[in-house]
Amino acid sequence: MFKGVLLGFMAFAAYALSDAFVKSLKGSLPAYEAVFFGATLGLFALPFIKTRGDRWREVLVAQRPGLYLVRAVAGAVGSIAAVIAFTALPMAEAFALIFLLPIFVTILSVVLLKEHVGWRRWSAVVAGFIGVLVVLRPGFRALGIGHLAAAICALAGAVSMIALRVAGPHEKRITLYSAGVIGPMLLTGVLMLADFHWPDMHEWLLLLGYGLLAALAAVLLMLATQKAPANHVAPTQYSQMLWAVFLGYVLFHDQLDWPMAVGIAIILGAGLFTLVREEQVTLWWKRARMIL
């Protein structure tokens, strides 16, 4: 159990470092181009994720092709939006909005899956949006494309998570992982055709850090869920916020004021509470344990 949770923390540290690398590009490459190279490098994780009995064709062939397509498109949209958000916003502020994902999952569970949501989870939803208002303070500070991109990233991630809930019991791990890599790679590859910029050496190094660290994180997360239940590993994702504050301050000289810190704390608290209630009420962790 301890090893699994520790691996979870290591995985999300790698994800945070990956985000720091893409932020360091500072928009020198189009977001879709950065996502293309990141997703391509993400293929390096496939040999480690493939288990005995898996077939390579299952990278592209799914039992539920419609849900595979949903995850592919959501992965592409979410990845592009994440790159834009990290480029335009301080890391902690971008993460604060992206961590609305569990809140959006709750809402989509009602709309799409017709799940019953009690007053406790609805309270967490309201609290999460109050936290967003505290962070953004509309009318008191300028809002830009980065804020919109972070919210779109969270919504796309929630759509992908809902698709995982439905597809998880029917698909193999390699298929579930591949949808989130192949989709962004193909869709952004098409977008690149119109206006391709060949990266210079410095940009290549940043892209390598972005893609390989994300691939490493995926492998670590898989190992984590092999050693500990997914519901114990999932909350470790919130350690990304600590990394975001630290990396933002050290590498990018980001500053957090008190209202933003309070808003972030509210969003994180609401998200963690939602994760706990999701496990207690829906038990979807057991149905989809293999997806992480």
Rank of each mutant, 00 (worst) to 15 (best):
V105D: 03
V105K: 15
S109W: 00
S109P: 01
S109F: 01
S109M: 14
V111H: 07
V111I: 15
L113S: 04
L113H: 07
K114P: 03
H116R: 15
V117E: 10
W119K: 12
W119D: 03
R120F: 00
W122N: 13
S123V: 09
A124H: 04
A124I: 05
V125P: 06
V126G: 04
V126T: 14
V126A: 14
G131Q: 05
V132K: 07
L133E: 05
L133V: 11
V135G: 03
P138S: 08
P138T: 12
R141C: 03
A142E: 12
I145D: 03
H147T: 01
H147M: 06
L148V: 14
A151T: 08
A151E: 01
I152H: 03
C153L: 06
A154P: 01
G157I: 04
G157R: 10
A158W: 07
V159S: 08
S160G: 11
M161V: 13
I162G: 05
I162Q: 10
L164I: 15
R165H: 07
V166D: 03
A167S: 15
A167W: 10
G168W: 05
G168E: 02
P169F: 00
P169K: 14
H170L: 13
K172G: 12
R173H: 07
R173L: 10
I174F: 00
T175M: 11
Y177S: 09
G180E: 09
V181G: 03
L187F: 07
T188F: 00
V190Y: 01
H197D: 08
H197F: 00
H197C: 02
P199Y: 11
D200C: 11
M201W: 09
M201V: 14
E203M: 13
E203T: 13
W204S: 08
W204Q: 12
W204T: 04
L206K: 04
L207V: 11
L208S: 01
G209E: 06
G211H: 07
L212H: 04
L213P: 00
A215P: 01
L216G: 06
A217I: 06
A217N: 01
L220M: 11
A224T: 04
Q226F: 04
A230Y: 02
A230P: 01
A230G: 12
A230V: 15
N231M: 11
H232R: 13
H232W: 13
H232V: 10
H232D: 02
V233G: 04
Y238I: 12
